[in-house]
Write a protein that binds this DNA or RNA. Structure first.
Lengths: 232, 232
DNA sequence: CGATGGTTTGAGATATATCAAACCTCGTGG
DNA sequence: CCACGAGGTTTGATATATCTCAAACCATCG
């Protein structure tokens, strides 16, 4: 039995465009891999030799300047696609934030397979378009929002994207409480702020009773409406 | 004779994936349109009814907050594709900066056509992937760079993207002198700054002899190396 | 010419960064 | 079990880049 058949993201990842026959073929060129938190799958500037699907976990995409400033330019979740098919070098590194499982392909193999399966390319196109939309929305946050608005927006997005499909509760209800897959420094690198500013905004939101912080890695949204107002 | 056959971007836009026969079919569902500077082709939040190819001119993609802050999230040039195929609403407005010519399709027609022409979808995928790369690089600028670095990076990118293919000089040499398609306010909206800060950085770069400003809408790069150093 | 819209310059206010110290939390080894 | 240490986090005091508000300036067009 191929690994794909029992894959938890089988129906959500780009693989959902393939029938059993095709899936079997794809399975022969891919392999599973586990990543520990902090482990990287690719590095900024290297040529793009791998692509992958996220099966489980949360990973960051990040770039930096030569003098060490870092910016997280994307966050990927289960069923998301990673890497840069069709030539060029990858402009950002990919690093696991939590323990993660991914399904890896050599880019060459994947490119060839994709070119023969338009339905797969179509799914990939849809995903890429959606990712571009999300990324552009994030530019508004980076360019025009205040620190408070940034953190509030971030927490709201997080609460929406961390929902596991097929979990208890109404489908796709944003979470009220969740474990942050980010350190304070990483939150700062997502929002284009310093760690101190992020910390101060966290404590402010808590002091105002809008969120609660059971531990450093957990967040409870106490008053979602107020948090939405804070997000600007 | 179909308009496509004489189209100046015929070999660079996504249409380059099509043979004469297919191009003729595409031609029947598209039409040309001219836009004056300031004229919009689509608006933020409306559902995506149109897509288009840019034939000539420069257009901006922009979003804003409710309280009127604006952020330009993309700039498109001849041969670029505009709009959001395959469902959803467009997350940003599209407005001409210079007089522009575009080749418009109803999204429904275009979607149907694309689904039947995998080579076209493939081109579109490549373009979308490239645009996503560029957008992510821009996030580093918005999140982590200083005003001076931002303006320098902007001018350098501008000098590269404004080159007309098939023009005099070594192919694809960045321009030394060019007309800015942006007002100062629009530059500010690209860089996530205020108009005053942009103005001060312009005068500083000029005072330091790195650039020259023959007029408010023209820029000469006097010392490219220094400008690259300023870009961080 | 004089009006108009965009731009530059100036002075001052402010959000965020920077530098520095105190504070948790958790694992380790005595 | 407790002391210790190390990393990450919070808090504080100060500096600074950028914003804000305001006025002067300049080009363009009737």
């Amino acid at each position: 039995m191929s690994a794909c058949e029992t894959c938890v993201v089988r129906n959500r990842a780009i693989c959902s465009s393939l029938d059993d026959e095709e899936l079997k073929a794809l399975n022969t060129i891919g392999r599973r891999r586990t990543l520990e938190p902090g482990e990287s799958l690719m590095w900024e500037g290297e040529d793009s030799v791998l692509v992958a699907n996220v099966i489980d976990g949360v990973l960051k995409l990040s770039t930096g300047t030569e003098d060490g400033r870092e910016q997280i330019v994307g966050v990927v979740y289960p069923s998301d696609f990673i890497g840069r098919p069709f030539g060029s070098t990858s402009g950002h590194g990919v690093t696991a934030l939590t323990e993660s499982r991914v399904c890896i392909f050599s880019r060459r193999d994947f490119d060839a397979f994709a070119r023969e399966h338009p339905a797969l390319e179509h799914k990939l196109l849809q995903r890429t378009l959606a990712e571009l939309d999300r990324t552009r929305r994030w530019m508004l946050l980076l360019g025009r929002k205040s620190a408070g608005e940034k953190l509030a927006s971030f927490l709201l997005e997080m609460s929406e994207r961390l929902v596991q499909p097929g979990c208890v509760g109404a489908p796709d209800t944003p979470l009220k409480r969740f474990a942050l897959p980010f350190s304070r420094q990483q939150v700062a690198d997502v929002l284009g702020l310093t760690i101190e500013t992020v910390s101060r905004q966290f404590t402010r939101l808590k002091a105002e009773g809008i969120i609660d912080l059971p531990s450093r890695r957990e967040v409870t949204i106490v008053n979602r409406q107020a948090l939405e107002a804070e997000a600007g």
